[in-house]
Design a protein around this nucleic acid. Structure first.
Lengths: 226, 226
DNA sequence: GAAATAGTGTCTGTTAGACAGTATAAC
DNA sequence: GTTATACTGTCTAACAGACACTATTTC
C-alpha cells in the first residue's frame, strides 16, 4: 500500500486573563520559515507520542507549568496543502486555559515568548485563523461549562470569576445577578469557607471549582442573532 | 530538519434518521487490517488535497450523494501511536448529517456498506470511540443550531423535524410545544406556503431550513446533571 | 465617619412545560 | 359521523435582568 507522507504538529492556543483582558501566549519564531514572526507555540509530534501528550509536553515546555487549575482540549486540525512551505504538514490545534501566573519562557526554537492581548496580529502560517477559532470556542465554552474557573487560581472569588467572563466575552455583567447565578447553579463552584483579607470592601468568600461537567442552566451571552 | 513521518486519513461518522431511529453508515472492510470487520467509512488524504475536500470526496464515494440538504463538519483527530497496525496513522474524523434517501453503495475497498442503528458495534480501529464522540456532538449540536433540518429533505413538516430530535436524543417531545418553539425561534425554519397532501389528519405546512447559524433561544434537552 | 466591595431581596417580563381546545384532512 | 394529525390558546412555575437595599471591611 502506498499513500502520501505527512508531518504532524501540535499548535497551542493558550489563553489567560491579565488585567481584565484576554491574552494569548505567542512565540517569536527562531527558525525558518517565518523567522522572527510571531506564532502560536507548537512543534512536531514525536514518533511514539499521543497527540494529547504532545500538546501537554509543548505546553510544559512553553509555560513551565502543567499543574492543575488549567484546562486543555483539542480544538481542531488544519491541513491545507500549502499551509507550510516545508511540505505537507497537518497541525492538530489545542486550546488551553491557564490562570495568570507564569511569565512565559522562550523554548528552544523560539527567540521570545510573551502574553499578548488578543486582536489583529499577523501571525505565521494559518495561525490567525486557528487563534480566531480558539477564541470563539472559548467564548462558547464559558456558556455551557464551568471552565471559567480554569482561568482562576485554585481558590477564587465570585468577582474574579465574573471578570473572566467579562474579559472573554468583552461585555460587562451585573455583579449581583452573576453572584446569584454562580452560587446557585449546581456544581459550578464550591465554597471553601475561607475569605479574602486585607483588601478594601467587605471580604469576599473564596470558592473552588465545582464538579459539574456542564452548567445547567447555562450562563448565556446577550443575544447576537445568527 | 528531521521529524517523524505519518499517514493521514479521514474517517466519517455519517448519521441519518431511519424509521424514527438514529443510524450510522458503516462499511465492511475489504482489506487488511481488520478484514471483514465493520468500520467507519474513510480513506487516506491525497497528496494535494485539503482535509475537508478529502472528507467530501469520501462522502461522495460512499453515499453517491453530495448534494445540498446535508451537513459536514470536522469532529476531531485521533492519533494514538498504536491505533493502526500499519504504522503511524493520524485520522481526522468528520461528522455528517444526511436525509434518509440513498441506499449506500460499497466503495472500492469495502465489501459492503449499510445503515446500522447506533449501539454497540465492535468496530475496527478506535472507531467505536469516534462514533461515540460523533453521536455526542450531534446531540449537543441539535440544541444550539438549526442543523436538525440537515437530516430532513429540502421541504419538511414540523413533525418530521421533531422526529429528528426524538431519534437523536432518544426522548419524546411534546408536539404542541415543539411546534411553537420551532416556528417562533427566528431563523430556524421558513414557511414554503405548501402543505402535505393525501395523508391522514390535517395537512401539515411544509417548511425549509432557515438562515440562522445559531438558535436563540436554544432547544434544550431535559436536564442530565453533569 | 466615608468609601469600597460583597452579598440579599424583590419586582417584572419572558420562557418552558403541561395540557385544553379547535381545525382540517382521510376514511 | 370516527379517527388522526396539525395547530392555537392559556395557565403556572422558573428564570433573567434590573436595581434597591443591607453587610462588612479599609481608610
Amino acid at each position: 500500500m502506498s499513500y502520501p507522507v505527512f508531518a504532524v504538529t501540535v499548535d497551542l492556543v493558550v489563553l489567560t486573563v491579565r488585567d481584565g483582558e484576554l491574552n494569548v501566549l505567542l512565540v517569536q519564531r527562531g527558525l525558518e520559515p517565518h523567522l522572527n514572526q510571531w506564532a502560536l507555540p507548537g512543534g512536531f509530534v514525536h514518533a511514539d507520542e499521543d497527540l494529547t501528550s504532545a500538546a501537554r509536553r509543548e505546553l510544559g515546555e512553553e509555560t513551565g507549568l502543567d499543574g492543575p487549575g488549567g484546562h486543555l482540549e483539542q480544538l481542531g486540525s488544519y491541513g491545507d496543502p500549502d499551509r507550510d512551505p516545508r511540505g505537507r504538514v497537518v497541525t492538530v490545534a489545542y486550546l488551553a486555559f491557564l490562570p495568570d501566573l507564569p511569565a512565559p519562557t522562550a523554548g528552544t526554537d523560539a527567540a521570545a515568548a510573551a502574553w499578548k492581548p488578543i486582536g489583529a496580529h499577523g501571525l505565521a502560517f494559518d495561525h490567525d485563523r486557528i487563534l480566531a477559532d480558539g477564541i470563539e470556542r472559548a467564548r462558547s465554552k464559558l456558556e455551557y461549562t464551568p471552565l471559567a474557573a480554569a482561568f482562576c487560581p485554585p481558590e477564587f472569588t465570585i468577582a474574579a470569576l465574573r471578570q473572566v467572563y467579562e474579559a472573554v466575552w468583552g461585555e460587562k455583567i451585573d455583579p449581583r445577578n452573576f453572584h446569584r447565578k454562580a452560587t446557585t447553579t449546581p456544581g459550578f463552584v464550591e465554597s471553601t469557607g475561607r475569605s479574602t483579607e486585607g483588601e478594601p470592601g467587605r471580604p469576599a468568600r473564596l470558592y473552588r471549582r465545582g464538579d459539574a461537567a456542564l452548567l445547567n442552566p447555562p450562563i448565556l451571552r446577550r443575544k447576537l442573532d445568527g
